[in-house]
């Protein structure tokens, strides 16, 4: 019971601190696309893949005192930072399964900025399409972000590297 909550907490425990809801959303989406067993439903939104279900889950975990949320003012907007609390760590002890490879993956993603993860998650969202069409989609749908050809290539290389890193994981 509450397994899906526990999975999100495992991801946060592995990442340490995540700065920004957008970043958190993209990290879980990317992990899901890499076949980690996250079952939150994602839709394509203005800023790329987004899950309302995940937003609610995070809100629940904060309300239960398992996640610590810090709201801070950035130039003109609010940003939220998340860390696992001691109570959260204690809660996770009820779950003796692991998601091998997830920790490395989350840590690697956490080193990237939200803009790049938005690009990576968008590439993954359209990965069923040929590369040229993906580039076209990014040019049209993400025109305001002005992603360059190099950044898109970098995103593809990053996805390959992440996939290799998580290659031998098992499922929960």
């Amino acid at each position: 019971m509450l397994t899906e909550h526990a999975k999100v907490m495992k991801a946060l425990a592995a990442a340490g601190e995540i700065a920004g809801r957008k970043k958190l959303q993209k990290m879980i989406y990317i992990a899901k696309k890499l076949d980690f067993p996250f079952y939150e439903k994602f839709d394509f939104h203005f800023y790329g893949p987004y899950s309302e279900e995940l937003t609610c889950r995070i809100e629940e975990l904060c309300a239960l005192g398992f996640l610590h949320e810090v709201k801070e003012k950035k130039s003109g907007y609010m940003q939220y930072r998340y860390t696992l609390t001691e109570a959260g760590e204690q809660f996770l002890r009820h779950y003796d399964w692991d998601m091998p490879g997830l920790a490395e993956c989350m840590q690697a993603m956490n080193e990237q900025n939200a803009r790049f993860l938005e690009l990576v998650s968008t590439v993954l969202y359209f990965e069923h399409l040929p590369k040229d069409e993906v580039k076209e989609k990014i040019a049209v749908l993400k025109s305001k972000q002005r992603y360059t050809e190099e950044e898109i290539e970098e995103a593809y290389a990053y996805i390959d590297a992440l996939r290799n890193r998580c290659h031998n994981k098992t499922r929960v």
Partner: peptide
Amino acid sequence: VVDSSSDLPYDFYRPGEEGERL
């Protein structure tokens, strides 16, 4: 069975943070 609010397909209005959703 434990059932949570996040298990439902409905939501409230949330202003969110920059870049989260419109």
